[in-house]
Design a protein around this nucleic acid. Structure first.
Length: 644
RNA sequence: GCCGACGUAGCUCAACUCGGCAGAGCAACCGACUUGUAAUCGGUAGGUUACGGGUUCAAGUCCCGUCGUCGGCUCCA
């Protein structure tokens, strides 16, 4: 068994010495509250919140619907559940809501809350329910589902006939609802909620369905908690990678270049090179070999790989050459690596073969999906493909998981969740390669490997890649954003399509398994994450500029330039601020660029071959010999230290 | 892709509900100052108000379209 460092259950902790704020998803906070024996109720996928808060939010959703109906009598209410931080309600309405509508509706909701109206539950027969909601096709569809079995208004499975139909009435409004609700609106503080936004939302989240208009609200137990939430949102905006990325000159987007196609500025270039250097070092130690492959290829390659039928929608349209040949920009690197594997006969003695590449891929994400660096159309993946035998699989797979954990330790990533994504029975032959036995077998292999290693994970059906199960790593940025960083996929199908083989001990040709892995995901997403994780204050080894020399007067500039040249010679990224501003202003500028070390030089330092070291944290280390500073900086860089 | 909001100087924002000469701070540039740990002073320049149409005597402002960004729906690295 491989030794693993860290566990997913390690409690999150702000980075010491950074201006850290901790905006964890509400679910994470709620778990600690659960220990204080407040009754909890589950909602959404695997989340929970205190029952009392759930009731308030749920009731506010109904009050929202009441207010909307008062202003828009033709509106058809659909569903309105409590969610993280508040609630929403979806309506079918002739026109979208305007910000002014929301103001009026919110004011009216407050009036209703202050009227201290009761919520009354009543169980009804199917016939009565159908009569009550005869003008609302959405409610009738929900009733169908409840009666026939299927899914309830929250998309959860119900048994046929097992559902009891109930309605809740408050004031003038009655809604089909399973509850629970507050008994009276006096339980709700009129200043502990507000409406936050409206947007379109498809009925049942399916874009083939009609579009409804959703109104979101925020709701807490007390006005103070609401204010705190709004304040944290404000903090999060300051830490947003899009804002910091521009301020720190890391990346930019240009309309003339295209949506989702980031330009990396020199500072971003440094960060990328450092990440690649780390990956290269780690992967060389782990027995990977580097390869490089083109960005475009003939259509036939993706037909053979099987990507085109599954992924054509996510690919840029092809370009057609004069002879009619069609070429695609590559959305992934694997087919190219398969070709390298296939270039010569392989023996079992050669395996495992690990081919790594920071290859640039292009995916035509829907315009509405693009989001800063987190979701882009051109991306460089920390990609590799491991070809191995079945016997080698477990060790190789765990080697990859171990790699993840090693990276997470370096970056101080303490909160992550591993998800085992499985196929679904319905998807066989459509979304997934049609080979049930191989699916089950491979899923077992992965599950066992994870269990043997003692790595915590949860399982999710119908989330696999088309060619096999995968482990995705969900991480949380410091401002509470959750996303998939790394992915680790088992491919039992595509190697065969490429006729990949090795000659085994018994002299027979066999098909290797392929593990696709990307522990650092893409440069784009990972750096977006790092910017938020560190609030732009990168550890020394990643900081684009590690030290800035600040001469106090013009006569110190030459000495500063000599020292800076010396530092650069020793592998420290140093600059001189030789502008005409005062020293204080230069410190301020360096602070705002979050440069780790500010080296102030005046007469004293110049005379003693020293620099006065000020840390980004504000700490003044006073004057020290240049060599002493170099030793300190080098040590922090070489150990990937998180402190200065 | 769909619904909505937004787009003014490199950045942050003005120019009002009701159309009437497009402005400020920071940054940049020039000059003076030569400073000891988060903003020295003075000056100069910088805009076809995202782009294209329309209404009007007159459009940053009203209308239409396009592009882009953001918030959602959905999916994922």
């Amino acid at each position: 068994m491989l030794k693993l460092g860290g566990t997913a259950s390690t409690p999150p902790r702000p980075n010491a010495g950074q201006e850290a704020i901790c905006l964890l998803p509400e679910g994470a906070r709620m778990q600690s509250q659960a220990l204080q024996d407040e009754p909890m109720i589950a909602y959404g996928k695997g989340k929970q919140m205190p029952l009392s808060l759930y009731k308030k939010r749920h009731s506010l959703a109904h009050i929202l619907a009441q207010a909307v109906l008062e202003f828009f009598p033709d509106a058809k209410p659909t569903i309105g559940p409590p969610v993280e931080s508040g609630f929403y309600y979806d309506f079918a309405v002739p026109r979208p809501f305007t910000p002014e509508d929301l103001q009026r509706i919110e004011a009216r909701m407050r009036e209703i809350v202050k009227k201290h109206v009761d919520f009354v539950r009543r169980e009804v027969s199917e016939e009565e329910a159908r009569a009550l909601f005869k003008d609302n096709p959405f409610k009738l569809e929900l009733i169908d589902g409840l009666v026939r079995g299927g899914t309830d208004e929250y998309g959860e499975k119900t048994d046929a006939g097992a559902a009891v139909l109930s309605v809740y009435t408050q004031d003038t409004f009655t809604d089909l609802c399973r509850g629970p609700h507050v008994e009276n609106t006096r339980e709700i503080h009129p200043d502990a909620f507000c409406l936050s936004q409206s947007s379109g939302a498809y009925w049942r989240g399916d874009e083939r369905n009609p579009m409804l208009q959703r109104i979101y609200g925020l709701a807490f137990d007390t006005p103070e908690e609401l204010q705190r939430y709004l304040h944290l949102q404000e903090e999060a905006r300051r830490r947003d990678h899009r804002k910091l990325g521009a301020e720190l000159e890391i990346f930019l987007f240009d309309e003339e270049i295209g949506p989702g196609l980031p330009l990396w500025q020199p500072n971003g270039g440094v960060i990328i090179e450092q990440l690649e250097a780390l990956a290269k070092r780690v992967e060389e130690e782990a027995g990977y070999e580097r390869v490089r492959t083109p960005h475009v290829t003939k259509e036939s390659l993706f037909l053979r790989s099987g990507h085109l039928p599954y992924y054509a929608d996510s690919m840029y349209p092809p370009m057609t050459l004069e002879d009619g040949e069609r070429y695609y920009l590559k959305p992934m690197n694997c087919p190219f690596h398969h070709k390298i594997y296939a270039a010569k006969p392989r023996s079992y003695r050669d395996l495992p073969i690990r081919l790594a590449e920071y290859g640039t891929c292009y995916r035509y994400e829907q315009s509405g999906e693009l989001f800063g660096l987190m979701r882009v159309r051109s991306m460089q993946m920390n990609d590799a493909h491991i070809y191995c035998t079945e016997e080698q699989f477990e060790q190789e797979f765990l080697g990859v998981v171990n790699l993840y954990l090693r990276y997470f330790a370096i970056f101080g990533i303490e909160k992550y969740v591993m998800r085992l994504s499985l196929h679904s029975e319905e998807g066989l032959g459509k979304k997934y390669v049609d080979n049930r036995e191989l699916w089950l077998k491979t899923e077992d292999m992965v599950r066992n490997a994870m269990r043997h290693a003692g790595v915590p994970f949860y399982e999710a059906e119908n989330e696999a890649a088309f060619y096999g199960p995968k482990i995705d790593v969900q991480i949380y940025s410091a401002i509470g954003r959750e996303f998939t960083l790394a992915t680790n996929q088992v491919d039992f199908a595509v190697p065969a399509r490429f006729n990949l083989t090795y000659v085994d001990r018994d002299g027979r040709e066999k098909t290797p398994l392929c593990i696709h892995r990307a522990p650092l995901g893409t440069h784009e997403r990972f750096i977006g994450f790092l910017i938020e994780h560190f609030a732009g204050a990168f550890p020394v080894w990643l900081a684009p500029v590690q030290a800035v020399l600040i001469p106090i007067a013009d006569r110190h500039v030459e000495y500063c330039q000599r020292v800076a040249a010396d530092l650069r010679h020793q592998g420290i990224r140093a600059r001189v601020d030789d502008g005409t501003e005062r020293m204080q202003n230069k410190i301020r500028k360096a602070q705002m660029m979050k440069i780790p070390y500010m080296l102030v030089v005046g007469d004293k330092e110049q005379q003693t071959s020293a620099v006065a070291v000020r840390l980004r944290t504000g700490e003044d280390l006073k004057a020290m010999p240049v060599e002493a500073f170099v030793a300190r900086a080098k040590e922090k860089i070489q150990t990937y230290a998180l402190d200065l």
